[in-house]
Amino acid sequence: MIAKAALILEKDLRTELRAKDILTAMAYFSLLVLIIFNFAIDLREVSVDAVAPGILWVSFAFAGVLGLNRTFVREQERNAIEGLMLCPVDRSAIYLGKFIGNVLFMLIVEALTVPLFILLFNLSAVGFGLVPALMLGTIGFASIGTLFAALAVNTRTREVMLPVLLFPVLVPIVIAAVKATGFAIGTISPDLAIPWLNLMIVFDLVFVVVSYLIFGYVLEE
């Protein structure tokens, strides 16, 4: 099971690292969002610390949707999804492989964006609290994201359908991740950040398990 998921993950990672097209586009896009926000919000007039976490997560959310949209497109375009399904692999293994792949891609993009973010927004103190905030937020994002990407790729309006379905259900993750990031840059005290981290843990657990169980119903027929 785990070995099979790892196989799918390895296949995706290898194709991606060879071409790098999606990763580059995601990183470029998240940087672009950060810069556009610099124009949209005059940072000389508002408190940077107050708006920065929100801007960071908007940029991750958009870049994330971009990546998620491509999750199953390769298989779809080359009709390889049938191939994937014909493999003696449990459908849930496909989910796990794709989910871990999406988490890794997003984390790579985040690792590239965060230094630029600190630089562009002149943030002075960024604590290690950022690590759990990014990890938990990204896992939550990719959990339902991977499931819904598999649905959306089968619709006529796939690029539109994914954010339409995904963003409303991700509201708790966005709020919690923004708050937890606020803690990392020192706008929220630690005792206020703990509930948000707990909320993200609950969200991640619930939706990784539910998506894992339900994924088989997407790839039927």
Binding site: I144, L147, F148, L151, L165, P168, V169, V171, P172, I175, A176, L199, V202, F203, V206, F207, V210, S211, I214, Y217, V218
Partner: peptide, 17 residues
């Protein structure tokens, strides 16, 4: 699938908001 995920999400949304 969307109907199931959407409903499970409601209490979490409420808590977060």
């Amino acid at each position: 699938i969307v109907g199931i995920i959407g409903f499970i999400d409601v209490p979490i949304i409420h808590q977060s908001v």
